[in-house]
């Protein structure tokens, strides 16, 4: 019996969502009175022993160039093998793009109940009940996993990264790796930008900005906050911004610490994607905009006037 955490890496670097999953898995292991171990696939460029500070005692590393890109089928087989040999009874994934590809496959392979999008530690006082978001963040559900092996995919920004003392033992794990059926031919990454799903601060704008040429001030504000940029659906549909910036019910659901909405009225579908944000600031010239009802702080005013001033004020405080 142990808790096994899948440590997702990109270009050799451990993702922030993985640190959250490690912290969550370590806490869960403590709750269950067992140990937490991690599994890393591919070619990491970081010192894996240092992951011990997030609470794991051991890292199983499967090194094979075939695992440098995600092929969910290969990853599933390898993780199933590691889970089997370590006797893992709970397997934790980050519920990011890669986690969403692998965790369901592993669930079907091991006949292990899966909760994807968990937002809290399980209640293990009577069974094994995990809280997750449903109805695109408009509600939550408590769901019981009834199988001996359990899989949890943890939502990004739902559990804080906790660091302590400690070094993990790194053990090479020899797994049978088939040749990949998915051949990655290219990947593009907007360099220097903060990925939307991992961002702690998100600056988002809507139709109130009138046109794509006015996004400079949004990007300026995002820059001083080290924030990711996002947009509402009409903006993405009009191709003012790329579709991967669209947050809302039919776009990406996010849960940053701070969400600043500029010129977005706050339709129910938009709110569904952002209402898990810890603090919401709304800037809109229409005092009747429904978004104000869902906000913590608001300014009724013209974005073109308010946003540059806000950028300056934040620059001062950050200096």
């Amino acid at each position: 019996m142990s808790v096994l955490i899948f440590v997702d890496i990109a270009e050799g670097q451990v993702k922030k969502v993985s640190l959250e999953a490690l912290s969550y898995g370590a806490k869960l292991a403590e709750q269950l009175g067992t140990s937490a171990e991690g599994v890393v696939l591919g070619t990491p460029k970081e010192d894996l022993a240092a992951l011990g500070k997030y609470g794991v005692s051991k890292i199983h590393h499967v090194s094979n160039p075939a695992l440098d890109h995600l092929d969910a089928q290969l990853y599933t087989k390898v993780i199933a093998e590691v889970a089997g040999s370590t006797g893992a009874t709970v397997i934790v994934f980050p519920n990011n793009m890669d986690g969403k590809s692998i965790a369901p496959r592993l669930s079907a392979r091991l006949k292990a109940g899966l909760i994807s999008g968990a937002v809290a530690l399980p209640d293990t006082s009577n069974g094994f009940i995990v809280k997750k978001n449903v109805f695109s963040g408009k509600a939550f559900a408590n769901i019981s996993i009834t199988t001996p092996v359990k899989i949890i995919a943890l939502n990004p920004n739902a559990y804080p990264v906790r660091t302590g003392e400690g070094t993990a033992t790194v053990a090479a794990f020899e797994a049978k790796v088939d040749s990949p059926r998915v051949k990655v031919i290219s990947s593009t990454k907007a360099s220097g930008e903060v990925p939307l799903t991992e961002a702690e601060v998100v600056v988002s704008a809507g139709r109130g900005l009138k046109g794509p040429e006015n996004w400079g001030m949004v990007e300026e504000l995002a820059k001083v906050l080290h924030a990711a940029t996002a947009c509402s659906r009409p903006v993405a549909d009009a191709h003012w911004r790329p579709h991967n910036e669209h947050v809302g019910q039919t776009g990406i659901a996010i849960a940053p610490n701070l969400y600043i909405a500029i010129g977005i009225s706050g339709a129910i579908q938009h709110l569904a994607g952002v209402n898990r944000s810890k603090v919401i600031v709304v800037i809109n010239k229409d005092p009747e905009a429904p978004f104000f009802k869902a906000a913590d702080y608001g300014i009724v005013g013209d974005a073109f006037d308010v946003v540059p001033k806000l950028t300056e004020a934040i620059r001062k405080i950050k200096a």
Partner: peptide
């Protein structure tokens, strides 16, 4: 993928 796209 996080902050980008991957083609396979």
């Amino acid at each position: 993928i996080e902050g980008g796209e991957e083609t396979a």
